[in-house]
């Protein structure tokens, strides 16, 4: 069902875990739908993503797309990271089953949410909820981690 590349990223996820000193953190998805992705970015003064990490609750594709997304943006500029598309993630994984394409969308959104959070902190904006809408009609139930890591 999954390509070797997907299974490789699932069984040996890259950049898994929180990043110390992260200055952009975004979380998308919803436990009710079965996937949540959290992305941690450490962006330096030149606007380069020095370090990146992820945490994911979800299926094999959710884990693999998060892992691949971190690889694709590590060491890149913010603009480059903002240009990351879900299809680039799918391509890098050598394909995903059609039913799992939404996971790659989530990975793209997780990166964007983390960057948005980085700018929000910089500008002192209120941090908005960036949870993706999965099409289900329900409330957001998960904790919003952004607030927590702000203190760190």
């Amino acid at each position: 069902m999954y390509t070797e590349k997907v299974m490789d990223h699932f069984s040996n996820p890259r950049n898994m875990g929180e990043v110390e000193g992260a200055n952009g953190v975004g979380m998308v998805g919803n436990a009710k739908c079965g996937d949540i992705m959290q992305m941690f970015l450490k962006i330096n003064d030149e606007g380069i993503i020095e370090d990146v990490g992820f945490k994911t609750f979800g299926c094999g594709a959710a884990v693999a797309t998060s892992s691949m997304a971190t690889e694709l943006i590590k060491g890149k500029s913010i603009d480059e990271a903002l240009n990351l598309t879900n299809s680039a993630v799918v391509e890098a994984l050598e394909g995903l089953p059609p039913a799992k394409l939404h996971c790659s969308v989530l990975a793209e959104e997780a990166v964007k949410a983390a960057i948005d959070n980085y700018y929000a902190r910089k500008e002192g904006r209120d941090i908005e909820c960036t949870c993706a809408d999965c099409g289900h009609d329900h409330e957001h139930e998960h904790a919003h981690e952004d607030d927590e890591s702000e203190e760190a």
Binding site: G34, F57, G58, H136
Partner: peptide
């Protein structure tokens, strides 16, 4: 944690199991 991930990880270890998660039921 989510069911499909558990199944994949068990399968890597040679164990065949099943789950009622959406990802394994083929629906939302």
């Amino acid at each position: 944690i989510e069911g499909e991930s558990i199944l994949l990880m068990l399968d890597i270890n040679g164990i065949a199991a099943s789950s009622g998660s959406a990802c394994t039921s083929g629906s939302l």
